[in-house]
Nucleic acid binder design. Structure first.
Lengths: 143, 143
DNA sequence: GTCAATCATATTGCGCACAATTTAATTGTG
DNA sequence: CACAATTAAATTGTGCGCAATATGATTGAC
């Protein structure tokens, strides 16, 4: 058995948590958790999406998203309404407050990115490697 | 605001969850969750450590470790006993069953690594990059 | 030696993740 | 139209992560 430091899984797990921890302080000033933040990122990119579409992009299921979205609704950042054409679907839409948070959140992203000390090119390389890895793990993992 | 795909934080978050998902099936046959597995990796490496030492290596606090270790104890994989020289400390020690699990777990690691489709050299490169990133995030994150 | 400060772990509470199940709406087939 | 199959979200239950606090043991200053 390899030592802990040689486990790629742990390197990912540790890096992901360290990154989330980096976002925690700045995001708390916006009243957001990290998972709430990435939901907002999707909405800033494509407003008015269904829970299913959010889940597809974030790889999160309704068990995670439903309560999270209810909290965003409570915070008056999104509205949740059924699609009139298909009452099974729930459409999530940004409120005015939700839109307004975009610029502050962008500052947070830049701020945390600076803390990584990465060059833009190194970050892009790492980003690509991680996307490839994620894709391969998903295809090769029997569900 | 960058799209979701340009966020390094999300690439890490997605990759880490995909990796954990890759371990889920094989580990469930050993009766372990992923966090329980990494605790066991530390113990296979250094048996008889305190909760504090585990927490230092894994960057997890007692709020996470205490219940997790109680479950490992329930599963008869570890014992938990106070240090007689300092009753504040709790020493976690592998049981016979805990030791015995090591080989099966090693197979799981190899199996999941194969699914990444990575060359050994590429994996080492990525491992190093992730360690660096984690270190930088930790130093630059005011706690 | 006493007692305040420190330290290690445990507890509590909240918000994810995810599996499994449920509920309700829609679709497809006869 | 009827109704079984499918689909989208919601619900339930378990196990993390982590902040905040509590408990109990040890240390240090006097």
């Amino acid at each position: 058995m390899r030592p802990l430091d040689n486990h790629l899984c742990f390197a990912l797990y540790a890096a992901s948590r360290a990154m989330t921890a980096g976002y925690r302080g700045p995001l708390s000033e916006l009243g957001l958790t990290y998972p709430q933040f990435i939901v907002m990122v999707v909405l800033w990119q494509t407003d008015g999406v269904t829970v299913g579409e959010l889940g597809k992009q974030l790889q999160l299921d309704s068990g995670t998203l439903t309560p999270l979205l209810k909290r965003l609704e409570q915070a008056n950042l999104v509205t949740r309404q059924r699609n009139a054409d298909d009452e099974r679907e729930l459409i999530v839409t940004l409120t005015e407050d939700g839109h307004a948070l975009r610029h502050k959140a962008n500052d947070v992203s830049e701020q945390v990115f600076c803390r990584t000390g990465l060059e833009e090119s190194a970050a892009m390389q790492l980003l690509g490697d991680l996307h490839d890895l994620t894709a391969r793990l998903r295809t090769n993992n029997p569900v």
